[in-house]
Write a protein that binds this DNA or RNA. Structure first.
Lengths: 189, 189
DNA sequence: CGAGATTACCTCGACGTCGAGATACCGCCG
DNA sequence: CGGCGGTATCTCGACGTCGAGGTAATCTCG
């Protein structure tokens, strides 16, 4: 992950924004300070990409913390939610192969085997033999697992909504659109 | 981290964007599919926050991969760069206490001790006793460490610039501003 | 039909991180 | 000066992930 930070007291260097927003001006953030430090130390570099991507990294970190806290209220770890939610949103009968879960959660196969083991042990999923392929396994959500993930999902959306409190409806929509423009080409490749 | 995904073939459900961009329309992305799945399975929930935050998570993941690849070209691991870059951007004499590095990299103290050990072993940093406080330690970049991190930083900025290729200058600026509005209150707290 | 390539999943050792606790030291107050 | 809470850093065992390799079943063609 990208450097995070919280160094020196807000010494507030001038920063310069390419596009001015005339009215409200939210305060300088950590990334402004990091970018200013790099400009001072490496004036030869164009550090503009950091203004976007370091914020993405920091936001992802905040989100991660908020997610953990939210899931903990429902007795779930973040990795458990990742697996259960993939099963849940696939719809009834809430079953997917380990392979499908791999691609959805972006972990390696060894990790997924381990996760399924532990989830099965906790009674949140069930391992079943694939009827079509004797190599295959199907992982199915139990009623308990579904109840947990449904509760956790509601809670998560509340938490996420709070994280976005700094933006109004239109800001969120614009942000989503801009992010899609960035992410779509990457997902495609 | 939030669910990632790559499930079913692009069955392209209708999605509906709150704010239309009239001209160019980049394709549907993975998050559009995840959101559509949740709308189908949990029509009782307002999943709008996912349109922003799941993209943030996915973008952070892509960024992480790109960073790793970039650093590897300079013989660095991502965690090594995180430490070295904090030292580098602080400016000469490129030294910080382990405690300062902790807050900047957001890892725990045990982890930082371990990182410093390994970086020192590789000759990229030096451990020195703090002159003022006998409990204290100062971690200083070696010439070798500085050379590495400088090279890696140039490369990283190129890579990041490419990740943002989907956006023009004004899009990047708008994105940075919107992200600041979200992140600033979180950093503050 | 059958050998080789491919696919699905699991095994297992190495590694980095966490986090509670230990240690050494600082600085304030009486 | 002596005690005590606070601070800076390190120690160490538990844990989750990676990823290369293994086993078993399926598929592809000749």
């Amino acid at each position: 992950m990208a450097p995070a930070t919280d160094p020196e007291p807000p010494v507030g260097r001038s920063v310069g924004r390419s596009v001015g927003r005339p009215v409200v001006r939210s305060g300088e953030d950590e990334v402004d300070r990091i970018v200013a430090a790099w400009r001072r130390e490496r004036p030869d570099l164009d550090v503009e990409p950091l203004t976007v991507l370091s914020r993405v990294t920091r936001l992802a970190r905040h989100l991660d913390l908020a997610r953990r806290a939210s899931f903990a209220r429902h007795g779930l770890e973040a990795w458990e939610f990742d697996v259960l939610s993939a099963l849940r949103r696939d719809g009834a009968p809430y079953q997917l192969s380990p392979g499908a879960l791999l691609t959805q959660t972006l972990v390696t196969s060894g990790t997924m085997t381990n996760r399924i083991d532990r989830l099965a042990q906790r009674g949140l999923v069930r391992r079943q033999k694939s009827p079509a392929d004797r190599r295959g396994v199907l992982v199915q959500l139990t009623d308990e697992g579904r109840a947990r993930v449904d509760a956790a999902m509601s809670d998560l959306l509340d938490v996420e909504s709070n994280l976005l409190a700094g933006l109004d409806e239109s800001g969120r929509a614009r942000l989503a659109d801009l992010l899609r423009d960035v992410v779509a080409p990457l997902d495609a490749s």
